[in-house]
Nucleic acid binder design. Structure first.
Length: 916
RNA sequence: GGGCGGAUAGCUCAAUUGGGAGAGCGCUGCCCUUACAAGGCAGAGGUCACAGGUUCGAUCCCUGUUCCGCCUACCA
C-alpha cells in the first residue's frame, strides 16, 4: 500500500473550492426533519441581500459554523437555516442611485417598473454574499435558503399584520416620528443614531405684547423652528416668570403672538434662561407639551426638511429669504435677521446630540405624519419574562440587563416606511366611504391617505369594503419596516403559518449567534413575535459576539480605509486561517481587534499541521498493529492521554461558547504537544519500519492524527478534510464523522508524571547547555541522577529517548551517588541532578551566566525570608500557604547553593588553565 | 444625563472563589538538525492606570480619580 504525498507547503485555494463543492454535491449540509438525532437548529442572521461579506459577517458566520459542524459531528439533527433579508431602505437607495446615474428616477419609472428594477438588481447581486458565505465554509442547508420577500415569508408577514391588527396591537395614527429627509421615510426610534455635535445655543428675545419694553429670553438650538412656535413655556413655580403665565409674546420675525404657558414637565428651571419655546410639530417634547396645552401644530418643514413658511405669518422679507432652503442653510440667515432686528440676545457654543439616519447619516427631523405602529408593551412583557426566568439565555450574561432595561422602557414601534421596496402594507381604504377621493402626491402619484380614513386590514385585497363598495379600494402605499419581517425569521423560514414538519422539528431553534448591534433591532423583536405567534421562545441561547475592529480599535469603515476585507484575507492566507483567528479572538464581552499579523500567525499554524501530516504520510507505509493503549509505547501512551485532555477541554469550552479557549487548547495541543514533543519522540521508533515498535507507533500516529483532525474540523473544515482523506479512515467525508469523545483507557496520570520527570531532566540539560554556551546541535555527554526511585527508574527506562531528544552521547545514569566530580558542571531540581563536562566551554561567559541567575534568586530568597519573618503572616496565613512559602524558600536556597557550587566548579576548572 | 465594560509585556489578550502574573504575535541571539525557515532552540521585556481603604498579604474585594470604549437619553 502506498500513501499519497503532500506538497511542502499548504496551498488552501484548490483544497477549499474542491471540498466545498463535494460537500454540497453529497448533500452533507442538508437537514432532514425525520433524522433521529436530537435537533440542533440555528437561523442565520440574514445579511442584506445586496450586501457583501465584511469581517463582521465573517466572525458571525464562523462562530455559527463551528457550532453547527460540532453538533452535526455529535450526531445531532442539525439545521442551519440560511437566507437574506431585503434591506428595504438600503437596497432602495442603491437602486435609486443607479437610476440617478442613468438620469432617471423611481418617480419617473413608477412603482411597478421600479420594483422590477429592484428585483432584477436583487437577482443580479443577491447571490454575492451567499457565494462569499460558502467561501467561508458555512455549512448551511442551502437547499432551504430563504429571502424575506419570498412568497411564503410574505404570507407570514401578512398573517402577522392581520392578527396583530385584530388583537388591537397595531394602529395607524398621526404622530411625530423620526423622518429621514433624504430617504424620505419614517424611521423607528432605534434606526436613529445619536452623535454628539457642537452647535450653538441661541438666546432670543420674545417681547411681551402688553409691554414691548420687556421681553422673555428664550433659549434654543434651532432658531429656524421659531416659525412653528405656538407657545412659550416657563416653570409654574419659577418666581421669575410665574406672573407672566397667561400673557402673550410677539413671535420674532412674524406677525403672530403666542401665549406663555406654565409647564413643569417640559421646563428645567436650571437650564438656559428657564423659558422654552414650544414647537409641537417639530420636537418630541414639544409635541407632548402641545397636547397638554392644546396648542396648534404648525409645520414649517416639508418632506425634504426645507423651510415652508406659508401659514406661519412670517415677515415677508424673511420668508422670501429662507423659503425652500434646507435647515442648515436657513439657520445662519435667520440668525442674521434676528441679530439685525435686535432679537438675538446672545449665542454660545453648545454640545448636543444630533439624530442621524442609520442608513445614510442624514440628520433626521421629528416629523408629523400618519404612520402604522405596533403597540409594543403587551408584546414586551412576556419577552421580558422569558429572559428573566432563563427560558432565553443571553450569553455573555452582561447583556441581559441591557436587554431588560431597553425592553422595560420600550416605545411603540413605527413600522411603516414611505418606500416601495418591501412588504406593502395589507391595508385598504375605501374612497367612496371616505366621501372624497384621496389626494395624490404630485411627485410619485402615491395616494395620500387621510388620518381619518378607515383601514380595512386583510391578507389579500378585499373585493369590496364592508359597505359593499367595489372599485374604490386603495391600498396603503407604504411598506413595512424590514425588521418586521426579520422578526418572524425563526419561524417564517420554517414554513409558518403552515404547520410543517420542519417547524415541528426545529422550532424553537437552539442558538442564535449575533452581534450586539442588533440586540434590539432583531433579537428583542424575534422574542416578542416568537412568543406571540408560536407561543414559544424562538431560541434557547443567544450568543452575543463582539464587534470587529481594526488593530487600533477603530470601527472599520470604508471612509476610514481601515477595512480588512475577509475575501482578500481568505485569498491570501486561506479560509481556515481566517476562521481560526476569528475564533481565537472571540473573547466574550470584548471587541475583536483584528490585525493581519495575527492571521498570518494562524496561517503558519495551518502549515504546521500540514507538515505534521506530511511527516505521517512519509512514515505510515507498512503494517499497523493495534495494541490496547496500556501496552503501547511511552510516547504513544502519553499522546493518547494528552489527546484525551484536549478533547475534554475543547468540548467543555465549546459548550460554554468559549471559542477563544477552545481554539487555544487545540493550538497548544497540536503545536506543542503533538508536533514538538510527540512527533519528535516517535522518530526513533520509526527508524526500522518493520519493527514491532514501528507497527504499533504507526497505528497510534494514524489514530491520533485522525482524531485530531476531527477535533479541529469545526474550526478548520478545509485542511482537516484534505488531510483526513489521506489518512487511514472510514467513510467518505469528515463532515459527518463523530466528534471525538474522551476514552478512559487513553488517560494515564502515571505516564504523564513520568513524562514530567523527563521534561524536568531535559530542562536541566538545556540550562547547562545555556550556561556553557553549547548549542543544541552539539553532542554532549551527560550524567544524570534520579533522586527518587520513580525518577531513577524512569531515566533508566527512557535512556534512549533522552539521548535522542537532547542530542546526548552516552548518557550515564548513576543511582544515588553524588555525581559531582572534577570538570563537571552539575545542576539539580526537585527529583533530578544533571552534570556535564565543562571542557571546551567559554568559562568566563559561563560564570557570567551563573552569576546573573544567582542575583535574581538572591532577591527572591530575601523576599521570601522577609515574609516568613513576619509574625502576623506566620500566625494568620493558612497552613498550606505557609508550607508553600517554606518549600519555596528551601527550593530557592538550595538552588543558590547549587549555583554557588556550579560557580566554584567553574572557578576550579578555570584555575589550571590560567596557571598553564 | 443615566447605565455597562475596560485599563496587565512593544501589540492583542488570558489568569473564578485574595498567597510570587501567563500565552500568541512582535523583538534579540544562535541554528537551513530529512515533516515544517510559514521552522527549531534560547532569551530580553511587567510599580498588573492613579490615590486611598479592608487584610498577615491585593492585579483580584471596597471607595474615589483619570483616561478609553460601548449602549442609552427629548435638557431646550
Amino acid at each position: 500500500m502506498s500513501t499519497p504525498q503532500l506538497d511542502k507547503t499548504y496551498s488552501p485555494h484548490d483544497v477549499e473550492n474542491r471540498w466545498y463543492q463535494r460537500w454540497i454535491d453529497a448533500g452533507l449540509f442538508h437537514a432532514d426533519p425525520t433524522h433521529a438525532g436530537q435537533p440542533y437548529s440555528m437561523v442565520i442572521p440574514p445579511p442584506n441581500v445586496t450586501g457583501s461579506l465584511h469581517v463582521g459577517h465573517a466572525l458571525n458566520n464562523t462562530l455559527q459554523d463551528i457550532l453547527i459542524r460540532w453538533r452535526r459531528m455529535q450526531g445531532r439533527n442539525v439545521l442551519w437555516m440560511p437566507g437574506t433579508d431585503h434591506a428595504g431602505i438600503a437596497t432602495q437607495n442603491v437602486v435609486e442611485r443607479q437610476l440617478q446615474a442613468e438620469g432617471t428616477s423611481r418617480e419617473a419609472l413608477g412603482r411597478e417598473e421600479f420594483l422590477k428594477r429592484v428585483w432584477s438588481w436583487k437577482e443580479q447581486s443577491g447571490g454575492t454574499i451567499i457565494g462569499q458565505l460558502k467561501k467561508l465554509g458555512a455549512s448551511c442547508d442551502w437547499e432551504r435558503e430563504r429571502f424575506t420577500m419570498d412568497p411564503g415569508l410574505s404570507e407570514a408577514v401578512r398573517e402577522v399584520f392581520v392578527r396583530l391588527h385584530q388583537d388591537g396591537l397595531l394602529y395607524r395614527g398621526e404622530r411625530l416620528i423620526n423622518w429621514c429627509p433624504r430617504c424620505l421615510t419614517a424611521l423607528s426610534d432605534i434606526e436613529v443614531e445619536h452623535e454628539e455635535a457642537t452647535g450653538k445655543l441661541y438666546t432670543i428675545r420674545y417681547h411681551l405684547v402688553d409691554d414691548p419694553t420687556q421681553c422673555l429670553l428664550v433659549a434654543t438650538t434651532r432658531p429656524e423652528t421659531l416659525f412653528g412656535d405656538t407657545a412659550v413655556a416657563v416653570h409654574p413655580e419659577d418666581e421669575r416668570f410665574r406672573h407672566l403665565i397667561g400673557k402673550h409674546v410677539r413671535l420674532p420675525l412674524t406677525s403672530r403672538t403666542i401665549p406663555i404657558v406654565g409647564d413643569s414637565i417640559l421646563v428645567d428651571r436650571e437650564f438656559g434662561t428657564g423659558a422654552v419655546k414650544i414647537t409641537p410639530a417639530h420636537d418630541f417634547n414639544d409635541f407632548e407639551a402641545g397636547e397638554r396645552h392644546e396648542l396648534k401644530r404648525i409645520k414649517i418643514l416639508d418632506l425634504h426638511a426645507h423651510l415652508r413658511l406659508a401659514g406661519c405669518l412670517a415677515d415677508s422679507a424673511v420668508a422670501e429669504a429662507v423659503e425652500n432652503l434646507p435647515v442648515a442653510k436657513a439657520r445662519p440667515k435667520i440668525e442674521q435677521f434676528l441679530t439685525d432686528q435686535g432679537f438675538l440676545d446672545k449665542s454660545e457654543p453648545h454640545k448636543m446630540a444630533l439624530g442621524k439616519c442609520y442608513r445614510c447619516k442624514t440628520v433626521v427631523e421629528p416629523f408629523l405624519s400618519d404612520q402604522w405602529f405596533v403597540k409594543i408593551k403587551p408584546l414586551a412583557e412576556p419577552a421580558i419574562q422569558v429572559v428573566e426566568d432563563g427560558r432565553v439565555r443571553i450569553i455573555p450574561e452582561a447583556w441581559k440587563n441591557n436587554y431588560l432595561g431597553w425592553m422595560r422602557d420600550i416605545k411603540d414601534w413605527c413600522v411603516s416606511r414611505q418606500i416601495w421596496w418591501g412588504h406593502q402594507i395589507p391595508a385598504w381604504y375605501c374612497e367612496t366611504c371616505h366621501g372624497t377621493p384621496f389626494l395624490r402626491r404630485s411627485s410619485d402619484g402615491a395616494p395620500l391617505i387621510p388620518s381619518d380614513a378607515v383601514a380595512i386590514v386583510a391578507k389579500t385585497q378585499p373585493d369590496a369594503c364592508p359597505q359593499g363598495h367595489r372599485d374604490a379600494l386603495v391600498q396603503d402605499p407604504d411598506v413595512l419596516d424590514t425588521w418586521f419581517s426579520s422578526a418572524l425569521w425563526p419561524f417564517s423560514t420554517l414554513g409558518w403559518p403552515k404547520q410543517t414538519p420542519e417547524l415541528k422539528a426545529f422550532y424553537p431553534t437552539s442558538t442564535l449567534v449575533t452581534g450586539l448591534d442588533i440586540l434590539f433591532f432583531w433579537v428583542a423583536r424575534m422574542i416578542m413575535m416568537g412568543l406571540k405567534f408560536m407561543g414559544e421562545v424562538p431560541f434557547r441561547d443567544v450568543y452575543i459576539h463582539a464587534l470587529v475592529r481594526d488593530a487600533e480599535g477603530q470601527k472599520m469603515s470604508k471612509s476610514k480605509g481601515n477595512v480588512i476585507d475577509p475575501l482578500h484575507v481568505m485569498e491570501q492566507y486561506g479560509t481556515d486561517a481566517l476562521r481560526f483567528t476569528l475564533a481565537a479572538m472571540a473573547s466574550p464581552g470584548r471587541d475583536v481587534k483584528l490585525a493581519e499579523e495575527r492571521i498570518e500567525g494562524y496561517r503558519n499554524f495551518t502549515n504546521k499541521i500540514w507538515n505534521a501530516a506530511r511527516f505521517l504520510l512519509m512514515h505510515l507505509n507498512g503494517e499497523r498493529a493495534e495494541l490496547p493503549p496500556a501496552q503501547r509505547s511511552f510516547p504513544d501512551r502519553w499522546i493518547l492521554s494528552r489527546l484525551n485532555t484536549a478533547i475534554s477541554t475543547v468540548t467543555h469550552e465549546l459548550e460554554q461558547y468559549r471559542f477563544d479557549r477552545a481554539s487555544s487548547a487545540i493550538y497548544q495541543f497540536i503545536w506543542y504537544e503533538y508536533c514538538d514533543k510527540y512527533i519528535e519522540m516517535v522518530k526513533p521508533a520509526l527508524k526500522d519500519p518493520n519493527s514491532e515498535q514501528a507497527k504499533s507507533t504507526r497505528q497510534t500516529l494514524a489514530e491520533t492524527f485522525e482524531t485530531m483532525m476531527r477535533l479541529l474540523h469545526p474550526f478548520m473544515p478545509f485542511i482537516t478534510e484534505e488531510i483526513w482523506q489521506t489518512l487511514p479512515h472510514d467513510g467518505t467525508s469528515i463532515v459527518r464523522k463523530p466528534f471525538p469523545t474522551t476514552k478512559t483507557e487513553w488517560e494515564s496520570q502515571e505516564v504523564e508524571q513520568e513524562f514530567a520527570l523527563l521534561e524536568e531532566c531535559r530542562a536541566l540539560m538545556n540550562q547547562e547547555r545555556a550556561i556553557l554556551g553549547h548549542t543544541a546541535g552539539k553532542r554532549l555527554h551527560f550524567n544524570i541522577h534520579g533522586k527518587t526511585d520513580v525518577a531513577h527508574s524512569a531515566f533508566i527506562k527512557h535512556k534512549a529517548l533522552i539521548e535522542y531528544m537532547e542530542n546526548v552521547e552516552n548518557l550515564s545514569i548513576s543511582g544515588g551517588v553524588d555525581i559531582a566530580a572534577p570538570h563537571l558542571l552539575t545542576l539539580t531540581s526537585g527529583s533530578t541532578e544533571v552534570g556535564t563536562s565543562m571542557e571546551g566551554a567559554d568559562l568566563h561567559k559561563a560564570k557570567d551566566n551563573v552569576t546573573k541567575q544567582m542575583a535574581v534568586l538572591q532577591k527572591e530568597v530575601a523576599r521570601t525570608r522577609q515574609k516568613l519573618g513576619n509574625p502576623d503572616f506566620v500566625a494568620k496565613a493558612p497552613p498550606e500557604v505557609l508550607t508553600d512559602h517554606r518549600d519555596r524558600l528551601a527550593r530557592e536556597s538550595r538552588m543558590i547553593e547549587l549555583l554557588q557550587q556550579a560557580l566554584s566548579q567553574i572557578t576550579l576548572e578555570q584555575t589550571p588553565h590560567q596557571a598553564s
